[in-house]
Simulated scan of single mutants.
Amino acid sequence: MTNTAGPYHRGSLALQDRVGVRGPAEHVGRSIGPGIREVAAAFLERQPTLVVGAADGAGRLWASLLTGPPGFVRATGPGRITVAGGLPAGDPLAGVLAEDGTSVGTLALDPATRRRMRLNGTAGPTARGFAVEAERVFANCPKYLQRRHPVELLREGPGVLRRSGALDADQVRAVRAADTFFVATTAGGGTDASHRGGNPGFVEVLSPTELAWPDYPGNAMFLTLGNLAEDSRAGLLLPDWESGRTLQLTGRARTEFAPDGSRTVRFTLEEAVESEHPGRLRWSAPEYSPANPPVPHRGSTTT
């Protein structure tokens, strides 16, 4: 996803120019590189979860959640991580992580400290799971991260509960209550996994197949929106922190710009997968980020 202009491709550069943040973005971009520093390696080894974004065999993007005991993700070289285990059966990405040369975006998030780290590269199978050869490694600020602590590891679960082409009433309520989701995007041959957070209600359900959320000011990189400007495919992962259940959505997304400069992303759903896998984590109630903007009151647009 790099080019001669630095760590950004033309989609991100166009967004930075449109918003007027090219200078700050160039400064932040200097932190992006293929190396995994000691502090980053130590951070990875403490995490019990890892978000992975990739395309399935049909080319649809998904974001998936891996869990394991701290240490299941390790830096095994200056530009390589290994992951013990894999995704549970039925996960949309379970097969592709067993293939050589899979483009992936990964995100390690520690809700307790509001720290996060992104590592994008190429995955391939190992004897115990899979490895990622890093191409882009960088940390992000704690903005819009809700503080949580792990409570319980749930060892039993039925697995995939439901697949559908539209959200049902319970899923609509879950989306409206969400304060966090993860989004996988791609462009220029590379894949990225990013975090989005806000107060409950910041994700709007326009219909059972269409969502919208505001793009809050961030680090000026415009990696996600830049990817969407080049390739509209997107995969969303919405965790239910209290039960450990996950809702994965794949579809297409686009960015709309308002006259006042604000931005809204609209997502059209193609398939939804709701799962309750063994080995999932339950987390404590959130302490919301002080950076979260207030959510405007909206009337119900769908049931």
Rank of each mutant, 00 (worst) to 15 (best):
T4W: 14
Y8K: 08
L13F: 04
L15C: 05
Q16R: 10
V19G: 04
G20N: 10
G23Y: 15
A25R: 00
A25K: 03
E26A: 09
V28Y: 11
G29Y: 06
G29A: 06
G35L: 11
R37C: 07
R37F: 11
A40F: 07
A41G: 11
F43M: 10
V51Y: 06
A54Q: 05
A55H: 03
L61D: 00
W62N: 07
A63G: 02
L65F: 03
P70T: 03
F72K: 15
R74S: 14
R74K: 15
G77I: 03
I81Y: 01
I81C: 10
V83M: 05
A84D: 13
G85M: 02
G86T: 10
G86Y: 03
G90F: 08
P92E: 08
P92V: 05
L93A: 10
A94W: 06
V96L: 01
D100A: 13
D100V: 11
G101P: 09
G101L: 14
S103R: 15
G105F: 07
A108L: 04
A108E: 04
L109T: 00
R114G: 06
R116N: 02
M117R: 00
G121K: 04
T122K: 00
G124D: 02
P125K: 03
G129V: 04
F130I: 02
F130V: 08
A131E: 15
C141H: 08
R147E: 09
R148G: 08
H149F: 14
L154W: 06
L154K: 05
G159R: 10
L161D: 00
D170S: 14
D170T: 13
D170A: 15
R173K: 13
A174V: 00
A174I: 01
R176G: 15
A177V: 04
A178F: 10
D179N: 13
T185R: 06
T185F: 06
T186A: 15
A187D: 09
G188M: 03
T191K: 08
D192E: 15
A193T: 12
H195S: 07
H195P: 06
G198W: 01
N199V: 00
N199Y: 12
P200H: 06
G201S: 09
G201V: 08
V205M: 01
P217V: 02
T224K: 01
G226Q: 11
G226H: 06
N227A: 07
E230P: 01
D231Y: 07
L236V: 13
L236E: 13
L238M: 05
L238N: 02
D240Y: 10
E242V: 13
S243E: 09
G244K: 02
G244P: 05
R245D: 05
L249F: 03
T250S: 14
R252P: 01
R254Q: 12
E256C: 02
S262H: 11
S262G: 12
R266L: 15
F267W: 03
V273Q: 06
E274M: 09
S275E: 03
W283R: 02
Y288T: 06
N292M: 13
P293G: 13
P293R: 14
V295F: 01
P296W: 07
G299Q: 06
S300W: 02
T303D: 15
